[in-house]
Design a protein around this nucleic acid. Structure first.
Length: 580
RNA sequence: GCACCCGUAGCUCAGCUGGAUAGAGCACCAGACUACGAAUCUGGGGGCCGGAGGUUCGAAUCCUUCCGGGUGCACCA
C-alpha cells in the first residue's frame, strides 16, 4: 500500500527531527505525539502546515522559531516542496510543487479503489457490535441509524487495516421474548380458528406474528391451544425468536448489512459464561454482596432493600455499584452483558458498541465493566446514536407503538431506496438528533446532499460518453502538466481523502466521509461551472485534445475518490441521473 | 435530585481529537444567463461559538461552574 501524502510528510518531519537530534541541536528521546500535518484553512498558508516546532519546543523547553527554521531548511530540500515558510509562533507552512499534485493524481488513478486505504489498524482486531435489536419484531426506523453507522464504521475500520468482526447480540433471554412467545401463542390459536378479538394489552400487536402462529398451528395442530404455558412457552419462544431473527436478517440485507456473528444471550447463560465472569471478578474483589440505595427520582412503591451480588463499578467511575443477579438468582441484563463483553474481548483488541441514545444511562457501567474485565488494556468505545425524527413534508409521521403501526425499515427502503437511507443516516454526527423527511431526501436539488454527490459522479460518468462523441480517445498517459490552477485545487481536495479516512476511523465518526464527499462534489461542480461560461475551460474541449485528455483524467480520478468514499458509506454510485 | 448527550449565522448543521481572520447550505440582498454542460452561477450582509472563570505561545475544541434543551434513572431489556 502506498503511503499517503500526509503520512509521507510526517515521515519527512520525523527524519528532520532525527537529524537535529544527531547534530545535538535537540534532545533525543522526546515523544512525538501531537505532531500534525494538515491542510491549512487558508490556502494562503500553503498546501500543508505543521505545528511540529511548537509542540517540540514545548517539550524540550526551547523556542519554537529557531527550531522551525532548522526543520524548514530540511523540508525545503525535498523534491516535492516548492517553498517553506516559518510564520507566526512557529508554524511551518509548506507549498508543494504543481508536479507533486499531478503525481498525487496519478496515484489515485493507479490505486483505484484502494486509494485512501491506511495501515493504521494493521494487526488489530476490532469487534463492533451494532443493531442488536430485540428479536420481537421487524426492524423499524429507530434501529436504522445505528445499523448504518455501525456498518459504515466497520467499513472504515476495515479500510484502515483493522480486522473487523461485525457482531449482533440477540437479547433472547429476557422477559420480552416471553411476551413474544405469548403473542405468538395468541396468533397460533387464531390460526387454529379461534376468534379471540383484540390481542391482549401488553402483547405485541403487529401482524408480523400471524405467519409464525400459522406455522406453529401447522406443526403442532391444537396440541398447545389450551395447554398450560409451561408446556409451550420455551418452544414458542424459540420458534418466534428464530422467525424474528430471520425477518431482521432480511431487513438488514435490504440495507446491505450482514453480520459475521450472532451472539445469543440465552446461549451465553446456558454456557455458564456469566458464572465464569462472576467467579473471575469475585476472585479480584470486583463483585461483592451488598444492598443498593433505593433509586432516585421516580419513587418505586415496591422498593425493598435486599442483598445482591454487585459489581464495584463505582471504582471505575460509575455512580453506584450494579447488580449482576436478580433476587431470584437469575442474571440481570447487565450481568449477562458484562460476561458478553468479557467474551468479546477475548478475541479482539478493541471493542465498539453502537447503542441507541435511550441506553445512555447504562454506558458508564458497561465501560466500567470492560475496563475491569480487560484490566484497562483494551480500547472500548460506546457510540450513542440519537433518534431519527421521521417527517413527511415537514410534518412528523404519526406512529403508535400500541397499534403496532410503527414505520418499518423495509417500508422506508421501499419508498426511497437503500442508498438514500444510508447516505442520509451519515449526514449528521451520530450523537446529534436528525430529521429524516421523505420529501426532501429524494429531492433533485443541491440542497440534498445525496443528490449533490451522486450528481457529481453521474456528471463524471457522462464525460466518458461526451468524450467518445467528440472523438477523443483517452489514451493512457495524458500530459498532466496541462492542468491549471483550478484543476489542481480540486486535486488538493481529493488528496485529503486518505487523511480524512484515518481521522474518521480513529474518532469512530463515519459521518466525516459524507461531509468530505459533499465538499469534494462542491469543488467538482464549481470547476464544471467554469466551463459553462467558457467552453475552452470545459472538460471536453474538442479544439484541444491533449488538454481534454488531461482534464478527463482528472475527472476520472475525482470519480474514483467519490466512489471510494461512497463505498465506505455502503452507497452505490449513480452513473446516470434520471431526469425528473 | 443525579448522570449522559446537545447548545456555533435568522434556520439546518460542519469545524480535521488544541492551531492562524470560525465555515457550508438554506433564507435574505445585489447582479449574471435568449442557457439545456443552468435539475443554476457570481458577489454581499449576517457570529459574545449559551454565560463566566481557568489551563497555554494559541481554546468553538481541554478543565471548573452556572444557564437552557433533550434523554435516562431498576431487581426492564
Amino acid at each position: 500500500m502506498a503511503v499517503s501524502l500526509h503520512a509521507r510528510f510526517l515521515d519527512h518531519l520525523a527524519r528532520g527531527i532525527d537529524d537535529l537530534q544527531l547534530a545535538k541541536d535537540f534532545p533525543a528521546g522526546l515523544q512525538r505525539a501531537g505532531l500534525t500535518v494538515e491542510r491549512p484553512r487558508d490556502p494562503a498558508h500553503g498546501d500543508l502546515s505543521t505545528n511540529a516546532a511548537m509542540v517540540l519546543a514545548k517539550l524540550s523547553g526551547t523556542h519554537p522559531r529557531p527550531l522551525a527554521e532548522k526543520l524548514a531548511d530540511g523540508l525545503a530540500k525535498l523534491e516535492d516542496v516548492a517553498a517553506v515558510d516559518v510564520v507566526g509562533p512557529g508554524f511551518i507552512n509548506i507549498r508543494l510543487t504543481d508536479q507533486a499534485w499531478r503525481d498525487e493524481l496519478a496515484v489515485i488513478a493507479d490505486q483505484k479503489d484502494r486509494y485512501g486505504m491506511s495501515p493504521i489498524g494493521a494487526g488489530k482486531t476490532v469487534n463492533i457490535e451494532f443493531v442488536s435489536a430485540n428479536p420481537t419484531g421487524p426492524m423499524h426506523m429507530g434501529h436504522c441509524r445505528g445499523a448504518v453507522v455501525g456498518d459504515a464504521l466497520a467499513n472504515l475500520l476495515a479500510f484502515t487495516g483493522h480486522r473487523v468482526i461485525r457482531e449482533y447480540y440477540i437479547n433472547d433471554a429476557g422477559g420480552q421474548v416471553d411476551v413474544l412467545a405469548r403473542s405468538a401463542h395468541h396468533r397460533y390459536r387464531e390460526a387454529l380458528g379461534e376468534s379471540l378479538g383484540e390481542i391482549a394489552e401488553g402483547l405485541y400487536p403487529g401482524d408480523y406474528l400471524k405467519p409464525v402462529g400459522a406455522a406453529l398451528a401447522a406443526d403442532f395442530g391444537d396440541r398447545y391451544a389450551d395447554a398450560p404455558e409451561t408446556d409451550w412457552l420455551a418452544i414458542f419462544r424459540a420458534r418466534a425468536v428464530a422467525a424474528m431473527m430471520e425477518t431482521i436478517r432480511e431487513d438488514l440485507a435490504l440495507l446491505g448489512i450482514s453480520h459475521d456473528r450472532f451472539a445469543s444471550e440465552a446461549d451465553l447463560v446456558a454456557a455458564g459464561k456469566p458464572d465464569d465472569a462472576e467467579a473471575w471478578m469475585r476472585a479480584r474483589d470486583l463483585v461483592y454482596d451488598g444492598v443498593l440505595e433505593p433509586p432516585k427520582g421516580e419513587i418505586s412503591k415496591d422498593w425493598e432493600p435486599i442483598a445482591l451480588p454487585l459489581f464495584r463499578s463505582t471504582r471505575f467511575g460509575d455512580d453506584q455499584d450494579r447488580a449482576i443477579r436478580k433476587p431470584d438468582g437469575g442474571w440481570t441484563y447487565f450481568g449477562v452483558d458484562l460476561a458478553y463483553h468479557f467474551e468479546k474481548a477475548r478475541d479482539a483488541d478493541e471493542l465498539i458498541d453502537i447503542w441507541g441514545a435511550d441506553h445512555a444511562g447504562t454506558v458508564k457501567r458497561i465501560v466500567a465493566a470492560a475496563e475491569a474485565l480487560t484490566e484497562g488494556r483494551k480500547r472500548f468505545d460506546v457510540k450513542l446514536v440519537q433518534i431519527v425524527r421521521l417527517l413527511r413534508a415537514g410534518e412528523p409521521v404519526k406512529m403508535s407503538k400500541r397499534a403496532g403501526n410503527f414505520v418499518t425499515l423495509a417500508d422506508v427502503i421501499r419508498e426511497v431506496g437503500k442508498d438514500v437511507v444510508r447516505f442520509m443516516m451519515l449526514t449528521r454526527k451520530a450523537e446529534a438528533p436528525m430529521d429524516f423527511d421523505f420529501a426532501t431526501v429524494v429531492e433533485a436539488s443541491k440542497d440534498n446532499p445525496v443528490f449533490y454527490v451522486q450528481y457529481a459522479h453521474a456528471r463524471i460518468c457522462s464525460l466518458a460518453n461526451r468524450a467518445a462523441e467528440a472523438g477523443i480517445e483517452l489514451g493512457d498517459a495524458p500530459d498532466l502538466a496541462l492542468l491549471d490552477g483550478p484543476s489542481l485545487t480540486l486535486v488538493k481536495r481529493a488528496a485529503e481523502f486518505p487523511r480524512i479516512v484515518e481521522a474518521a476511523a480513529a474518532a469512530r465518526e463515519p459521518h466525516r466521509i459524507a461531509f468530505f464527499l459533499e465538499g469534494l462534489a462542491a469543488d467538482f461542480h464549481a470547476l464544471w461551472n467554469i466551463g459553462n461560461a467558457d467552453p475552452a475551460r470545459r472538460f471536453v474541449y474538442p479544439e484541444n485534445l491533449p488538454v481534454s485528455r488531461a482534464r478527463l483524467f482528472l475527472a476520472s480520478a475525482i470519480g474514483q475518490v467519490i466512489r471510494n468514499g461512497l463505498a465506505l458509506m455502503g452507497v452505490e454510485p449513480t452513473h446516470e441521473m434520471e431526469r425528473a
